[in-house]
């Protein structure tokens, strides 16, 4: 049986209490939300935090609402709650697409969206989805609150801008008219991390692309996004030819590594193929299709 090393356990009763505990126990403490990445890593002893700070009682961080023209989600929102939220699905079908293929119902019932983003796995679907829709992360610390664009949130694999005495509290996504979005993922089996995945958000004026976001997971894309492909699309007609070109650019600019999920050339191919597919589906949704 896999058993973790010794650790201390604290239960936070409020965000302020959590921040105080983080300040007290320092960098060797870890926040426990859904625990579906952290606990397995502890059992494998890949992670050996001295203290766990359990935030599962912070119900004030579990919400999902539209406010000030933004979709706002508390960091403790469970995957299942995002997946079942009509308001999220109405404005950003990409989030439902992604959630539907994240892990399995048991993990989704417990795992949180903030936890997934902070885990910062290079294959995290939500990191790509939120990069595509240009989400804004709200981070709270002892000194107050700051916001960071999703594309600046991750510093590298398993590393974010959240300091050891800070807590990610909210994710905001600006709602702009004329949008459609979609997420495409290839995995080896239901519940697996992606071999490669692409998300796309499109804003159209007639047939012209006014804004676009492309998120990529598991293919070594900088900031989980394909900025060069977006540049190539902005102002262009939303045609299959444009999308194909964007897919090629996205593939050229990512740096996938070979592993047992697949060789680098295949992942690069997926970056292109799935980018095109996501763009096509996003376009269909702008035009009112369910896609």
């Amino acid at each position: 049986m896999q058993v973790p090393a010794h650790f201390e356990y604290e239960k936070a009763t409020s965000v302020e209490h959590c921040l105080a505990l983080l300040a007290k126990f320092g960098p060797e403490s870890r926040v426990l939300a859904g625990g579906h990445s952290l606990i397995p890593m502890m059992k494998l002893r890949l992670a050996q935090p001295e203290t766990l700070i359990d935030i599962n009682d912070l119900t004030e961080l579990g919400y999902l609402r539209v406010s000030d023209g933004e979709l706002r989600m508390g960091a403790l929102t469970r995957h299942a709650e995002l997946l079942s939220s009509p308001v999220a699905g109405e404005h950003f079908p990409i989030l439902h697409d992604a959630e539907r293929v994240i892990a399995d119902p048991i993990v989704r019932n417990r795992g949180t969206i903030g936890g997934s983003l902070c885990q910062a796995d290079p294959s995290e679907d939500l990191s790509a989805a939120f990069a595509a829709v240009r989400a804004i992360m709200v981070i709270q610390g002892g000194a107050g609150t700051r916001t960071v664009p999703a594309r600046e949130f991750h510093l590298g694999p398993y590393e974010t801008v959240v300091e050891s005495d800070e807590l990610l509290t909210e994710i905001r996504v600006p709602i702009l008219p004329g949008s459609g979005s979609a997420y495409e993922k290839v995995e080896r089996r239901a519940g697996d991390w992606p071999v490669g995945a692409a998300g796309a958000a499109l804003w159209l004026d007639g047939d012209t692309i006014t804004e676009v976001g492309i998120g990529l997971a598991a293919v070594g894309a900088a900031h989980f996004s394909a900025a060069e492909a977006e540049d190539a699309l902005r102002g262009e007609p939303a045609t299959d030819d444009s999308f194909t070109r964007a897919g090629q650019i996205a593939a050229e600019h990512c740096r996938p590594i070979s592993d047992q999920r697949g060789p680098a050339d295949y992942k690069r191919h997926l970056a292109a193929e799935l980018t095109v597919r996501a763009l096509r589906r996003a376009r269909g949704r702008v035009r009112g299709g369910k896609g």
Binding site: V186, R188, V195, R261, G262, P263, Y266, H269
Partner: peptide, 8 residues
């Protein structure tokens, strides 16, 4: 015959 194996 994973997706990668089939594609290759």
């Amino acid at each position: 015959l994973t997706p990668a194996a089939v594609w290759r």
